[in-house]
Design a protein around this nucleic acid. Structure first.
Lengths: 160, 160
DNA sequence: TAAGATTGAATTCTCAATCTTA
DNA sequence: TAAGATTGAGAATTCAATCTTA
């Protein structure tokens, strides 16, 4: 085994920094979101996806795809959100197996109230810390890693 | 409210890409780690931190600090790991409130078996996709965002 | 009083099994 | 058989309360 397998000191710094940034940023954003609007990040993602969909509704499997969630996770989570009045489930006429998930008035009100503050937090904590060049570099980096992951998935015959 | 509060199209791309990269990368690394060595990412982090400490042992609060975990999370997790024989808890002579956490032989064997493969995965999925310049840029970006978060924490009087 | 740590209950997530319809 | 979705059990995480000792 060559030492190509190990990380250099620079790589270690890069890797640990990257992980720490992700963890802290997420923790901070989640905390603020919860405090200001009573929504978890999971709630928020569901509501954003629905609110961007035509008619504020989406098939469950489409939501799964958009959020990269397992279907059982989504199902459990929707049950909780439905109990809180944020979404409703409806049957699908053209495919009797399927279910639609719709935003309720309350759900729409919740996301519309939460979004501006949340976006402002993202700006304050993330974009305000970076130059436009850095933002561009990060976009390229993300795409490169995502491409790599997609290739790997294809090779090993997995679903993304 | 000015539209400074909203994200530009470029920023949206950057933000969503960044989140997606983090999520997919973590999911993939966790899956491989679990499959190859029966360790979760949480297990792995605990074992790495202990294995790098002198004598393979650390105070519980030191582990908390190193991993940015809540103490109750650590305590529950250690109970599970202790039950699996990966770590043991020992009292502390100089501070009777305290507890040491030590790697067992089995715990050390587990991390030594898992680490090379895991590092190889990180290299394959992440570093091999990036140029040295991109790695450097990412390091700078992470530090900038972490600095911003630290400043925010200080201002609002929070602990990191 | 505060620091170090544990506990129990409630919430959330994962895994495997199941159900219904294409 | 496979796709879309739900369910229940078990594992992991958070929150608040507690316990002990500095």
């Amino acid at each position: 085994m060559s030492n190509d397998l190990w990380l250099t000191a620079d790589e270690q710094r890069a890797w640990r920094g990257f992980l720490l940034m992700g963890a802290k940023l997420q923790a901070r954003l989640n905390r603020e979101l919860q405090r200001r609007s009573g929504l978890s990040d999971a709630d928020y993602e569901v509501l954003v996806n629905l609110s961007e969909a035509p008619g504020g509704r989406l098939r469950a499997f489409e939501l799964c795809g958009a959020m990269h969630w397992e279907k059982s996770r989504l199902s459990h989570h929707l049950s909780r959100m439905e109990a809180r009045g944020l979404v409703v489930r409806e049957g699908c006429r053209t495919d009797a197996r399927g279910a639609f998930v719709s935003l309720t008035g309350q759900g729409r009100a919740a996301i519309e109230a939460a979004a501006p503050e949340h976006v402002a937090q993202v700006r304050r904590l993330f974009f305000d810390a970076l130059t436009p060049e850095q933002v561009e570099a990060l976009t390229t980096i993300s795409e490169a890693v995502l491409d790599r992951l997609a290739v790997e998935d294809r090779v090993s015959g997995r679903r993304p």
